[in-house]
């Protein structure tokens, strides 16, 4: 497998607190959708925060395109091409949709190019054009999530990490989020997803990772994860994939 991102046995936690991740590893292949599943407290979100530089990695390595990311700041990691959308969507509630998109391209120096890319995003997501001058904080949960995901595309990232994009959304809207994710993947963006709805996450992914108690227990094609009876029993609520 030609890995794009390689996480090797990392240990990480918050501040001086206990390690949340202890021996987590992950291999990310270009252009694929990867889904991390596991129970609450397994360290799924922590893993994403460690990759994007929000947490200090105490042991182990994060290697992206052959470059070690350990110790780099979030803004430096973003410039490498890794975007992260946390659970709370990370929007600026008192900024308009257009201003939020501008912030999405904060690291771009060419203003004209930034405005051109924003137009491109508004073209592809008509709901965002409709709400372009509306404060992000006044939009519905689904619209906010669409904005958060669309905003990552401004910098044409290599990897987009999404932490529970379906959280708090109605089932119909959840499917829309997965459709956007598939569209990203079809455009060559590698997606790393943490999803509480493990079954749905894996069904929409190419690669599955099972994390528990801060360690990676299994990593392989999503179909294999879905077919594994032990994983079905422990992490998918005993449900078999249709």
């Amino acid at each position: 497998m030609s890995e794009l991102l390689q996480v090797t046995n990392i240990t990480a936690g918050y501040g001086d607190g206990p390690a949340i991740l202890d021996g987590a590893h992950l291999t990310v292949e270009p252009g694929k959708v990867h889904c991390i599943i596991g129970p609450n407290g397994a360290g799924k979100s922590t893993l994403m925060k460690a990759i994007c530089g929000m947490l200090t990695i105490r042991k182990g390595d994060v290697i992206f395109k052959g470059k070690r990311l350990n110790g780099m700041r979030p803004d430096q990691i973003l410039r490498e091409g890794i975007c992260f959308v946390p659970q709370e969507r990370a929007l600026f509630p008192k900024m308009t949709v257009r201003e939020n998109l501008r912030m999405g391209g904060f690291i771009l120096d060419d203003k004209k190019e930034l405005e051109r890319r924003i137009e491109g995003i508004l073209e592809r997501f008509p709901i965002l054009r409709e709400r372009a001058d509306q404060h992000a904080g006044t939009m519905s949960g689904g619209q906010q999530q669409t904005l958060a995901m669309a905003r990552t595309l401004i910098i044409k990232p290599t990897i987009v990490m999404l932490d529970e994009p379906s959280l708090g959304l109605a089932p119909k809207i959840v499917q829309e989020m997965f459709d956007i994710m598939k569209m990203m993947s079809a455009e060559g963006v590698t997606v790393l997803l943490v999803e509480q709805n493990a079954l749905m996450g894996l069904k929409n992914s190419d690669w599955g990772v099972v994390l528990d108690l801060g360690r990676t227990l299994f990593e392989g094609p999503a179909a294999d994860v879905l077919a594994d009876p032990r994983i079905q029993e422990l992490y998918l609520g005993g449900k078999k994939a249709a």
Binding site: M54, P74, L78, P86, A90, L91, F92, M103
Partner: peptide, 13 residues
């Protein structure tokens, strides 16, 4: 942006 959401600002560079 930092005023409204410090973490998000950091994540956007």
């Amino acid at each position: 942006a930092t005023t409204q959401n410090r973490e998000a600002a950091e994540l956007l560079g």
